[in-house]
Amino acid sequence: MELLIFYPLALVSVILAFLVVFNKNAIGSAVCLIGMMLGLAGVFVLMQAHFLAILQVIVYAGAIMVLFMFVIMLLNLKDDDKGWKMRERNVWLTSGTGVLMIGVLYKFMDTTAEAEFNSPATVPDNFGTAELVGTSLFTDFVLPFEVASILLLAAMVGAVVLAKSKVD
């Protein structure tokens, strides 16, 4: 049953990811990326990680991708001719690397997934809810949480400084 939901979602996500890479213009890539993220949010829900699914939609698809769109539209880029191009010297190298990568990753993942992981473990009812995630975030993992906030502050300041115009 879950497989029926999983396969279409996964397929759509992969196709959209492909489209991100092989799209001619940047806006098209951004839109495909949004779609991919929504698909992933669906996969999260399938895995009963509800909180993170919501976060994915709000933060990733909602804030980060919007930022991307802003910048693309700000820069007002012309169409990238041919969309993608490999350096002549690197064609074979890159292709080979890609193939190799896929093969290795496949092998990697395959050996990791043992038979006993074929069925998911029994999880409590509040698995993946905001309550559970929030509790552990504020008790076990409070330090990374705080550090992350400082990181965000630093990123904010850095972004402002970097993007400031040179005037005054």
Partner: peptide, 29 residues
């Protein structure tokens, strides 16, 4: 859904991402 399915899905997405980094010329993409 077996775990391996999820993992292969993740791996595929990751490879596509790497491919995109190597191929695209536009910094934003």
């Amino acid at each position: 859904v077996p775990l391996s399915h999820y993992l292969i899905f993740s791996a595929t997405l990751f490879s596509i991402g790497v491919l995109g980094v190597l191929i695209r010329r536009n910094a934003i993409v």
